[in-house]
């Protein structure tokens, strides 16, 4: 009888849709985020480049991370609503004739959620990766320079391989964070996961069950999520255990 909840959880098929939604939005958010972070990290830690105002830029890119996710989502909801400022702007510059319904199209709704999460987290990722890059032995760079390597070669042949442990850590913690995606889509879609449940995440599903006090299903879902994060965390432990810089 105890397994019935699991059965109905998986047989309904909804959980697969929500798991897929969560993953799709995570990938849409993570890929640009990691590329951006690697690029910025490499630039900020590059002493030859000597970027001015690095502190200012770091301050700016970290700012969205501290903003209340629900307020940020509400802000995007009003900005991107059918009659909102972004549509007005696009129409005023003659980019479109009729308002684009950002929140009624699967692609743009998911895109907005991914954009918001990307904005909120790339600053954090940049700072983590930069710290990792600063820790790389500078004699390696000097040797590469003597051998006449280009900056692209240095990045792909030296920085990236040496950054692997911290990179893996970033990927997996971000994945664990991605599984917890909740505030932004919940507020943006008012908990409905519209359009057509395409932005409904696993935690929104859990929240729905918790709210309606449907504890059996909520429990089953919690256990599934727990196992998923548990496996991912074990990988993190293994990775940081192998990392020689471990404190």
């Amino acid at each position: 009888m105890g397994l019935e909840n699991y059965k109905s959880l998986f047989e309904g098929g909804d959980i697969w849709i929500y798991a897929k939604n969560t993953m799709v939005m995570w990938i849409m958010c993570f890929v640009p985020q990691i590329i951006l972070s690697l690029l910025l990290g490499a630039w900020f830690s590059d002493t030859r480049l000597r970027l001015r105002g690095a502190r200012f830029f770091k301050t700016v890119i970290y700012l969205p991370n501290l903003i209340m996710a629900s307020a940020f989502a509400m802000l995007f909801f009003t900005l991107f609503s059918d009659g909102g400022p972004i549509n007005s702007l696009l129409m005023q510059i003659g980019f479109i004739d009729t308002p684009y319904r950002f929140l009624s199209n699967t692609g743009s709704a998911r895109g907005l959620i991914a954009l918001m999460n990307c904005l909120m987290w790339f600053g954090n990722t940049t700072i983590l990766l930069m710290a990792g890059m600063m820790g790389i032995d500078t004699t390696l760079f000097e040797a590469a320079e003597v051998d006449g390597a280009t900056s692209t070669q240095v990045f792909f042949k030296i920085t990236l391989p040496l950054l692997r442990p911290i990179l893996l850590y970033v990927v997996i913690t971000s994945l664990i964070g991605g599984l917890q995606l909740f505030d932004v889509p919940q507020i943006l879609t008012n908990g409905t996961g519209d359009p057509m449940r395409s932005t409904m995440t696993l935690i929104m599903f859990l929240n729905k069950h918790l709210y309606s006090k449907n504890y059996g299903m909520a429990g089953a879902l919690s256990v599934v999520l727990f196992i998923m994060t548990g496996v991912l965390s074990l990988i993190v432990f293994k990775v940081s255990g192998n990392d020689k810089r471990k404190g």
Binding site: D46, T47, R48, L49, R50, L51, T138, F141, E142, A144, E145, G148, A149, T150, S151, T152, V154, I158
Partner: peptide, 17 residues
Amino acid sequence: SNGNNGLKKGLGIHARR
């Protein structure tokens, strides 16, 4: 110092900046 010293091929430091 970093790997871009004495860069011969690739973009110049100014362009990259």
